[in-house]
Design a protein around this nucleic acid. Sequence first.
RNA 1: GGAGGUGUCGCCUAGCCCGGUUUAUGGCGCCCGCCUGCUAAGCGGGUUGAGGGUUGUGCCCUCUCGCGGGUUCAAAUCCCGCCACCUCCGCCA
Length: 431
Amino acid sequence: MIDPRLLREEPDLIRAAQEKRGLSGSVVDRALEADAARRAAIADFEHLRAEQKQLGKLIAKATGEEKVDLLARTKRLAADVKTAEATQSEAEQDWRDALYAIPNPAADESPAGGEDDYVVLSEHGTPRDFEAEGFEPRDHVELGRILGAIDVERGAKVSGSRFYYLTGAGADLELALVNMAMDQARSAGFITMIPPTLVKPRAMEGTGFLGQAADDVYRIEGQDTYLVGTSEVPLAAYHSDEILDGDTLPRRYVAFSPCYRKEAGSHGKDTRGIIRVHWFDKVEMFSYTTLEEASAEHERLLGWEREWLDKLELAYRVIDVAAGDLGLSAKRKFDCEAWVPTQGRYRELTSTSNCTDFQTRRLDIRGRFATEGGQPEVKPIATLNGTLVAIPRTIVAILETHQQADGSVRIPEALRPYLQGREVLEPVSGA
RNA sequence: GGAGGUGUCGCCUAGCCCGGUUUAUGGCGCCCGCCUGCUAAGCGGGUUGAGGGUUGUGCCCUCUCGCGGGUUCAAAUCCCGCCACCUCCGCCA
């Protein structure tokens, strides 16, 4: 949720922000109207209610005929109060709906425009030149089959399209990546978490996933419960309705969890292999910090993502995602995209977003901070998230990047201790 | 799933039977000040959060006792539903 005060005082800023994302500014007018209506309704109700309470006090003291008189007066008032209260709560609901429809304004630094208007911030490593090495690279599906690591056929048989089994070396690889990622995050000071992945509407809405992203969310039939598409959801909602001690910030959590996505609207895209799937496991970093520190924290999260990709010896680039391609909650987003040899292009492997106070306002998360003068101050705080490792895409990048002419795959050195010291994944026969 | 119990301002706690100076009591913690020849002890004051009004910047008002309804002129208090936690039983990995 954007700051209601900002909307009221600087509506043109929000209009400009809508335009930068390629969205209509009409929601701004709707929200302003709703705000005015809400405030009028509040004043109306509170006025009547105050009168009612005054009379109530008199009644308590009054006796005899005087009391009868007062009771008659206030009885009529009671009905008016009830009506005014209903009007107020309706107006507040309208106002909330209008506000919730407005996304976080993009950062000044974010490029304007849509999906293709990103800016490349940096490139790291060099894509392998298979032509120079004299062999045709196999894609991850083929490598997965040869290594006995990925079984997409049986995934489809049992669960449908966009499902897979990780088998043998593939399963070992996931556990190794997860443990390595957790080790990295733990030594950076993150608290390790394994969160629930079925959540109530509050958590989903509070993190901004029931807006335009709602089509991508699995809902449990007959229940007000959702499967999360990322552990960002339970990690953000973890501190909902809490006031955190400012001294404890930043709070950094790292979670391992499965993620579920309908992938609605991506029919025909990435149908081969495990680039785009309905379920995958992920290790996610999450920070709560002050609004002042949020940008610096965002850079730190990006730094940890880069450290991770460097250790996997992947070629990748970092992009500044354009305003129109940001999620509802994000003010700014960096994606790390790894080179996928058989596709001849960079594909998103990790992503980090600065959500500022957008989620904390929805989830009622604030910080209590010491002030110069005296009494501590309660203020909104910021949340940020960043992928450390999304398993399938990382496996794709590793297999394709480090494959050898005979179909084996060299294990990056940093990962070997997590794979029983293995240096190479060898083809198996009879998958 | 069944039975019983509990849910009060950061934490603990009084109030609930019997509705009305309750502006929700007290303690801890925290903040400010006083006192004090050291970071102790003591004393005084402040301290839930959200929203609206006013711009007199300090004050006024409303909401907030797990959540939602209801009864009533009036609800922390009475009634109904829901949720969470605890104890016991059942079932289960």
